[in-house]
Simulated scan of single mutants.
Amino acid sequence: MIRILDEIPLAADRIAPVLEALDRLYLPACEARGLALEQLWVSPPVAVPGQCNTLWLLWQVADVPAYYAMRSATGAEARAFWDQVEAACGSRRRHVLGSADQRLETPHVE
């Protein structure tokens, strides 16, 4: 299992529009790409005046080949969602995680 953790710093008033775009633009195409939303969080869980919150999206795909297949199947909906996210936050980070005890392989990418 590969997990993908997206870290998105946002002003508190931008969280709801990003979540709406997630539901409308990104999630409908995820299943066909083998990408499943496992969990989402906001940190801190309150709006602190003058400070950003962080939206965390935890995804999963079956394995390394599924990860690369998911990336190559990215369509216009995904690009539209991430364009909207980047306009709202200015920067984001994606962490791709696997079990530390799995054998690390060099992927075959064509």
Rank of each mutant, 00 (worst) to 15 (best):
W59L: 10
W56C: 06
A88W: 09
E38G: 09
V85M: 10
I4A: 15
L37C: 06
A73K: 04
T106D: 15
E20V: 05
S91V: 15
L58M: 05
H95K: 12
E77N: 10
V48K: 11
Y26V: 03
S99M: 10
V64C: 08
Q84M: 14
E31Y: 07
L58D: 13
V61F: 00
L97S: 10
D23I: 04
P65D: 02
E105K: 08
A87W: 07
E110L: 15
N53M: 06
M70L: 01
Y67C: 03
A80I: 02
W41V: 06
P17R: 04
L55Y: 13
W56F: 10
N53E: 12
L104H: 11
D6C: 08
P17V: 07
V42W: 02
M1H: 07
A80E: 01
L5Q: 03
M1R: 08
V42G: 11
H95I: 05
L27Y: 01
A100D: 09
G50T: 03
W82R: 00
W41Q: 13
R33Y: 01
S72Q: 12
S91Q: 12
L35C: 02
H108I: 09
Y26L: 09
V109Y: 00
R103H: 07
Q84F: 08
P44W: 05
R92C: 13
Q102T: 04
L27D: 01
E31W: 03
A62N: 03
R3C: 09
E7V: 14
W82T: 07
